[in-house]
Nucleic acid binder design. Structure first.
Lengths: 345, 345
DNA sequence: ACGCTCCGAGAAAACGCTTTCTCATTGATT
DNA sequence: AATCAATGAGAAAGCGTTTTCTCGGAGCGT
């Protein structure tokens, strides 16, 4: 015996007793599974209503082998990108009667695998955002998490869908935009060093450099949040670059603020670009030129891929090749970028 | 029988078989509950490790009568305030080994009660943010949700803790700040009409009016998001007010942007205040004068109250008077407010 | 050497539900 | 009128744990 019987919630047995039928019958009418005599069904329903009976989800989960819940693991819930993914996912999942369980790893990479595993055990599937997890660890982890959908990561086990943003392409377009405005000295404010999406941007810039050997491209350390952009202000000024590609909008905004404090005008003196097009990007002063990622769509597509995968593993039609969705960012030209001003002198 | 036995996950029975002991013993060593022979314990642990056994949380939940999960229902996950509460809650709860389950009512008030009930059944407790739910409905719902903690609402059933922000006080301080700058015509950009926190601000302004009968106070409809602030720009201009109290920072930012588009300078022509001090408030142009609510703290305190309550209902020490925490906003004077400019002429 | 106590492990019940299995009852068919 | 199929409800097993209950065996005292 597990718990004292005191204070029990109303259970299926109570309804059964009140309606004068067996548990089984109550279950049947609640789920509309098998044919049951209309009179009896009515009696059961009346009893259930009278007692305000609501099936215990834990019991159901155990019997059914599903929890109607999916987990999402994110590195940092303070990041607008993950907030937006979470939101898109949550809304889409809710439409199908699923809930989402959060696991915030607080940027502690070593916890991610554990959290993901735990989430998977509690839920019917996991959406994993783990930008800094090592590739090897991811490869090992992924099979144990199935159904799994990856965000901004891919795995060789090709039956796990992944959604990603083409950061390489986006950053190249932003860089090209700056060049088209006449900028010749460009600096990239790097994101976290081990972040997969930072690596993609670097790769994109390498391609860009190859195409534009005449452009002077510098790399400055920054990070992924507002403060790291703000802190990078001096380095930016020292670099002498006229066009700045920030890792993301947050970093760009921090930089904007730092430049403003030093009386450096944007875009007259320096052009700045962000990345992501978070909701606030259009309201900075000046409004931020950035690469727009349809992030809510990403959240809801994540759910769709998850659902597909849960269905096909229910059908036991295993190992189907899964979709690899890549979102092409669309650059959004606002007023933080402008033609380079004439060199003094 | 519920599911086909194919593809089963490794369960306690497998470990028991491998170690040559009973389920019970495995459970005992996994939980360190009773004394078990060190040799046997070692054998069990070895088997568990070998099979990578991880207890099924659903089974545990059923046996233990707890899920180690709490639910939070929010009206809109896009709102930075709720994002921050969620985050604070999630991090604090995680520290105690609890996870949080999200229920986003998407502003559909009629769904809130249902979502809350469902969340409660799935979880060990619920944090409820339901600013627009009717008082009567809340009174009826609250007892069924226990352990429950309310955000920005109170209930007469005084054994449910509630955390709230003193919006009345905050808005009065902001208004007083404007007055001290010489503003005599002030407009309040109202939030959603049925929102409890909007009502509190109105009440605060009523007190303010009583103290300052000479001030001309106008009420303009707006809403709770950026766009509603932006849309209210014309009305603001038409009102002739020189000091604007926006419902919250989002509305203020929208207004800032609208005013900027019309070439109206802030703070030279019009002073604007927000409410909440969301992270972006300090980075608007100009930085926004606002009332700072320690929102992360609110999230973590919500968890503490929840935990206290779960403990005391475990102790069966029922009906203890619960804490009603009210946070006093601290006004944060930035550059969106300034002395009123001399009337022309 | 016998009986008593104590320790520790297995058997089994319990958590709350779903679903298969089984069987009684009814209505139809020959 | 007697057999058969169909219908529908109850009994019971099963989901994966934890925990109580029970009991065998070892250690102790006399």
């Amino acid at each position: 015996m597990a718990r004292r019987n005191t204070n029990r919630r109303v259970g299926i047995a109570d309804v059964a007793r009140m309606a004068g039928v067996s548990h089984a019958t109550v279950s049947r009418v609640m789920n509309g599974n098998a044919a049951v005599d209309p009179d009896i069904a009515a009696r059961v329903r009346a009893a259930a209503a009278e007692l305000k009976y609501q099936p215990n989800p834990v019991g159901r989960s155990l019997a059914l082998g599903k929890t109607d819940t999916i987990g999402i693991v994110v590195p940092d819930l303070a990041n607008p990108t993950f907030q937006a993914i979470l939101r898109g996912l949550s809304i889409a999942a809710a439409q199908d009667g699923y809930r989402v369980l959060i696991a915030d790893s607080s940027e502690v990479t070593s916890e991610e695998a554990i959290l993901a595993g735990e989430a998977r055990r509690r839920c019917d599937g996991v959406v994993l955002c783990a930008p800094r997890m090592g590739d090897a660890e991811l490869e090992e982890l992924a099979p144990t998490l199935h159904p799994l959908v990856l965000i901004n990561r891919t795995t060789v086990a090709s039956n796990t869908p992944s959604l990603s943003v083409d950061y390489s392409q986006g950053i190249q377009e932003l860089a090209t935009h700056l060049v088209s405005l006449g900028h010749r000295k460009i600096a990239y404010l790097e994101g976290p060093l081990h972040s997969a999406s930072n690596r993609q941007r670097l790769a994109g810039l390498e391609q860009f450099q190859a195409k534009h050997p005449d452009i002077e491209l510098q790399f400055l350390e920054a990070g992924s949040n507002f403060d790291s952009g703000h802190d990078a202000t001096d380095a930016v000024v020292a670099s002498g670059a006229t066009g700045i590609l920030a890792f993301n909008d947050l970093v760009a905004m921090g930089l904007l603020s730092g430049l403003h404090e030093r009386g450096i005008r944007v875009p007259e003196d320096i052009s700045v670009t962000g990345f992501d097009d978070i909701p606030f990007a259009r309201y900075t002063m000046p409004p931020l030129t950035t690469a727009a990622v349809p992030i809510n769509e990403l959240g809801s597509l994540a759910w769709r891929r998850m659902r597909e995968q849960m269905q096909q593993s229910a059908d036991a039609t295993e190992a189907e090749e899964s979709a690899q969705d890549v979102f092409e960012p669309r650059i959004e030209i606002r007023r933080s970028t402008a033609p380079v001003s004439l060199p003094v002198g």
